[in-house]
């Protein structure tokens, strides 16, 4: 074993101030395991699953649907089953899904006259196997209460202004149903590969609070210009 450490990287910084919630979480988990409420293996199973999921799954579904009409048809007909074609099994990580997530998965297609938006008014149900963890704002009572009452106003707050003749449909998730929006493919993406298309299908476009753009990916947004 080498005793030298000569490769080039910045030194690891000392840990910052310890949060009381680091302390609280560690204490809860330790006590729960000691009391047999669950096992360390249970916890590891969920941690590894959580680190695997993200919006890349949903982006891949949409991009493939844009390119493959047969896949799109299957996806709209049975989202849960068709997710398996890109390696997402809604029964992970337990064989029966998570306590929160194993449900029916519906993909909602936007059209020139219909725009879909997802919310969970009851709690914070979210299609985690395909979109990862919900953003903080999605879980707030502020968003949940207002999205169903004043969807156009909420969308406007995200910078999305829809024409008056576009119907806005709000889909309320629940214990049995999870939804994801399939946005329309934007202009300027003709001839693009699935990877190129997947890059512009960002999380917010699949929640329905934004529209995909050829010049906007999760890693790169257009430079704002003053008006």
């Amino acid at each position: 074993m080498s005793t030298t450490h000569d490769h080039d990287h910045a030194p690891i910084e000392a840990a910052g101030e310890i949060s009381e919630f680091d302390v609280l979480e560690t204490a809860i988990r330790g006590l729960a395991i000691e009391k047999g409420l669950f096992s360390p293996e249970d916890h590891r199973r969920f941690m590894e699953w959580a680190q695997r999921i993200g919006p890349h799954g949903g982006s891949r579904l949409v991009a493939r649907a844009w390119l493959d009409p047969g896949f799109k048809q299957r996806l709209l007909a049975d989202g849960t089953e068709t997710s398996k074609e890109i390696g997402i099994d809604w029964l992970d990580p337990t064989g029966t899904g998570t306590p929160s997530d194993f449900t029916y998965f519906y993909v909602l297609e936007n059209t020139p006259k219909v725009h879909n938006l997802i919310v969970c008014t009851l709690c914070s149900c979210y299609p985690r196997p395909v979109l990862g963890q919900a953003p903080e704002w999605y879980k707030t009572p502020h968003y949940r209460r207002r999205a169903v009452r004043w969807p156009r106003e909420v969308l406007a707050e995200f910078g999305l202004h829809l024409a008056a003749d576009v119907e806005v449909r709000v889909h309320d998730s629940n214990q049995k149903s999870r939804f994801m929006v399939m946005p329309m493919r934007p202009e300027g993406t003709e001839g693009w590969t699935e990877d190129q298309l997947a890059a512009i299908v960002t999380r917010d476009t699949m929640i329905g609070v934004a529209l995909p753009r050829a010049d906007w990916t999760a890693d790169r947004s257009p430079v704002a210009t003053s008006r």
Partner: peptide
Amino acid sequence: SEPDRASAPWEANLQATCECLSWRGALDNL
């Protein structure tokens, strides 16, 4: 909370703890 802040590591641990508690019947997620 900031609307789109990055989560701290303890939050991922807690999320997994909550899933375990619900899965094993100690505390239902809903």
